[in-house]
Design a protein around this nucleic acid. Sequence first.
DNA 1: CAACCCATGTAAAAAGTTACATGATTAA
DNA 2: TTAATCATGTAACTTTTTACATGGGTTG
Lengths: 188, 188
Amino acid sequence: MSLAHALLTALTEHQPATGFELARRFDRPMGYYRHATHQQIYQELGQLERRGWVSTHRDPEDFRCKYYRILPAGHEELLRWVHTPTEPAPLRESLMVKLRADSLLGPFALQDEIQQRIGQHRQRLEQYRLIEQRFFAQTPPATHQQRMQQLILHTGMAYEQHSLEIFAQLLEALQQAQDPPAPSDRAE
Amino acid sequence: MSLAHALLTALTEHQPATGFELARRFDRPMGYYRHATHQQIYQELGQLERRGWVSTHRDPEDFRCKYYRILPAGHEELLRWVHTPTEPAPLRESLMVKLRADSLLGPFALQDEIQQRIGQHRQRLEQYRLIEQRFFAQTPPATHQQRMQQLILHTGMAYEQHSLEIFAQLLEALQQAQDPPAPSDRAE
DNA sequence: CAACCCATGTAAAAAGTTACATGATTAA
DNA sequence: TTAATCATGTAACTTTTTACATGGGTTG
């Protein structure tokens, strides 16, 4: 149940927060590493409360809002989890399965889908670059928190950069395989 | 429902197959890109049968075994799926969440867990290298199938190689951040 | 004959997705 | 006053995980 710990982390980052605020954050910056929908988040916040890891209170000015705060037990649980090694999430790359299908039944035109992936990674990389400019261009990181935030950002950027390279290579190889450049002369 | 298509691909690769055989393959070579347990596979094979995508028959010699074969409808469905772009599976990297927690509450000793990841990627890469030696060392790929298989292998190797680099960089940065080399002289 | 691998499954629970519902506030 | 955004939720369904159950065959 790793969403619980991601939520505790998000709450540690900014407290108190409403389910809606958290959902927004899990749609973007936190969601880059751990996605969740608002439905899931409301459910999970309910569980966190039942376990005594967070407390809630309604805003007396705006009864719609319900604010969540971490309790000491939640803090301890987060620390416990951080120090417990977790298994990496198993890969699930449908494109690889499609490549296997291509090897058996193809050739198919998978280039479009690969191009899509390339576009997505390029976009994400661009977003990271903007974030870095906004937060670290003028002032180099001074505190532990800032250094770590920049490290996380750099790691994300490295991931996108590498993904980009992998798909670009794949695309090139596919293109070459499907336009075999005059296979008559194989001496050169 | 992408497990269905992964199963159809696996069956296309080697037919007929029992649930057990498929489970073994989803534990390793196919499982590198799309993991599944035997329980899931038996369930899903049942659904494939109900949908008319595969047929089954019992081995008259060994009544334990139940063999699955693709039907034309299953073949068509696989082709349809391959040509339909699928969304990439959202990332789910608990280590990144832990880094965020570290930025707020740390520093923690996350090096061990990162080392573990490095070890896992190194091992996977080694397995890929062995596979390549066994299948492509002597005879360079000649058919489309063989070229594609090698391409898949190379893509997998690139992924492991890049992951290795990302985690190695992360480890180094963490080590530097936590052994700050005499921060007294900040002019150089 | 005990331990292990082969082989197939069921059941329950947890996690995740999709669809639906509701009502308040704000901006056009 | 209509549409969009804020905000919280429920319900149904699918997918995944975990636990349990069974029985034949093989090997030490």
